[in-house]
Measured scan of single mutants.
Amino acid sequence: ETKSLTLVLHRDSGSLGFNIIGGRPSVDNHDGSSSEGIFVSKIVDSGPAAKEGGLQIHDRIIEVNGRDLSRATHDQAVEAFKTAKEPIVVQVLRR
């Protein structure tokens, strides 16, 4: 079962304390579909994302501050987090 969660993150020394993997390839599949998503791959101990109620590894990131990342490329997702103003509201899907 997958549930949708909304989390609020604040940077600590400029970092949110997690890494992402995935992202849509720069070239779409011929039918326009994509199974890619942006997923949390690593969480830094005691970083902002590790706090209670924070992110978990394998969370799929859907949205950052209202910006849809469900079909974003990896670079677009990285840029969305880099430029996001605080508080950073992150919507994820968690299995």
Rank of each mutant, 00 (worst) to 15 (best):
H74P: 15
I20M: 12
H74Q: 11
K51E: 09
I61S: 00
K3Q: 06
S26F: 10
I43H: 02
V8A: 08
R71L: 12
R60W: 02
V44K: 10
N19H: 12
Q91I: 04
N65D: 05
F81C: 00
I61G: 01
N65H: 01
Q91H: 12
G37Q: 03
G47E: 06
D75F: 09
G14F: 07
S41Q: 06
D68C: 05
H10V: 09
G32V: 12
G22L: 07
R60E: 08
I62T: 06
I38H: 03
E1Q: 05
L9R: 05
R71E: 11
S4V: 05
I88E: 00
E86D: 13
T6E: 05
A49Y: 06
D59V: 00
K3V: 10
D75G: 10
G23Q: 08
E52K: 11
D12E: 14
V44M: 14
I88R: 00
I62P: 00
I88Y: 04
G32W: 09
H10C: 07
S4Y: 13
R94F: 01
S15C: 08
K42I: 03
A50E: 11
R67S: 08
E52G: 11
G17S: 04
A50R: 09
S33W: 14
P87D: 02
R67W: 08
E63S: 14
G47F: 06
F39A: 03
K3F: 15
I38T: 03
F18H: 00
S15R: 12
E52H: 13
I21V: 12
I61K: 00
S34P: 15
E86A: 06
G32M: 13
I43R: 02
R67P: 02
I21Q: 14
S13T: 13
V78F: 04
R60G: 02
N19S: 15
D45L: 07
I61C: 01
G32F: 15
Q91T: 15
I57C: 07
L9T: 03
H10S: 13
Q91A: 05
V92W: 02
G22F: 13
I43A: 03
S46P: 08
S33Y: 10
R71N: 14
I61H: 00
S4D: 04
V27P: 13
G66I: 01
T2Y: 15
D12M: 13
G14I: 06
D45F: 05
G32Y: 13
E63V: 06
G37I: 01
V8G: 03
N19W: 05
V92S: 01
V27K: 11
E86R: 04
H58K: 08
K3G: 05
D68R: 03
R60N: 06
S26C: 08
H10N: 15
E1M: 14
A72H: 04
E1Y: 15
T6G: 04
T2H: 11
V89S: 08
I38V: 08
A49I: 07
R24G: 11
K51H: 09
S4K: 14
E36K: 08
I21D: 12
G66L: 01
K3R: 07
V40A: 07
R60T: 02
G14E: 06
T6Y: 05
V44D: 13
E36C: 08
R24I: 11
